[in-house]
Design a binder for these strands. Sequence first.
DNA 1: CCATTTGATAAGGTAGCATTAATATAATGC
DNA 2: GCATTATATTAATGCTACCTTATCAAATGG
Lengths: 141, 141
Amino acid sequence: MAATHPPHVHALLYEAYLRVSDVVFEGAKAMDARVRPSHAAVFFHMEHEGIRLGRLAEKAQMTPQAMGELVDDLEEFGYLRRVPDPTDRRAKLIVFTEEGDAALRTGYKIIDDVERRMAGLLGEEGFGDLHRMLTRIITYF
Amino acid sequence: MAATHPPHVHALLYEAYLRVSDVVFEGAKAMDARVRPSHAAVFFHMEHEGIRLGRLAEKAQMTPQAMGELVDDLEEFGYLRRVPDPTDRRAKLIVFTEEGDAALRTGYKIIDDVERRMAGLLGEEGFGDLHRMLTRIITYF
DNA sequence: CCATTTGATAAGGTAGCATTAATATAATGC
DNA sequence: GCATTATATTAATGCTACCTTATCAAATGG
């Protein structure tokens, strides 16, 4: 650092996120090398009943165009399908394929593993405290 | 979320970082709208005595080419200058201008403010715990 | 003193978004 | 029952923040 300070919590939040993410994305890459970190937003905000592109984009806080590209990829990879929305012929519903559903479950397994590793490292109490403090920061900042 | 879970700490780390960063970068933008978040890495890893491009890139974990562009920008904005390195005529030393030095100090003031806000929100003890837990995650992950 | 290494930089490419604009369908007011 | 306006998606294009490859000049080690 240009000035000598103990690292700011701001910087630590970033570093910690990067480390944990690395582990998660390594796990994901081992499952399917075509999937990139940006695709995670799709899985994260999907809905099993099917979801429209616009709503998916909104939940992920990006434009429908950007989300459209991610969905294009995952459709190509065989994880999603676009089916016509019966209630509105302009719209399409994005739904999981069998494989997409399996991939989602695998993804959560990878994340749950990492969460358990963190809990082991910090102790259940510390892990709970961390959860609460981060939630508090998110709520009030 | 596609499945209903309490948010993972992994996700919370990301969210918290984004919230805190927003505040920091809003503050920075208010000072100089030309400066972008990516320029922060330069200020963060600069050294007052002057530093070579290669070393700056190494510290920031990016290629010299990428760092070169950031330094180009900040040189244009008047915060940095490239001076010949007297010990090696291939090399240049990147040094702060007066304005760059002032900007660095302002930047740290903005961050320190945010850190104090977090400490206020969590209490000194909680803030210290957060600091230690994040450091622990970074060290052992 | 020449071969190799090192420092900077130029040219061109890619991922992950955004903005603007086109197209199709739907809903609404009169 | 149009004409207007709104909404869902997609296409074209652009920008930021990087990377890779290639070039050139200066330094260094046998």
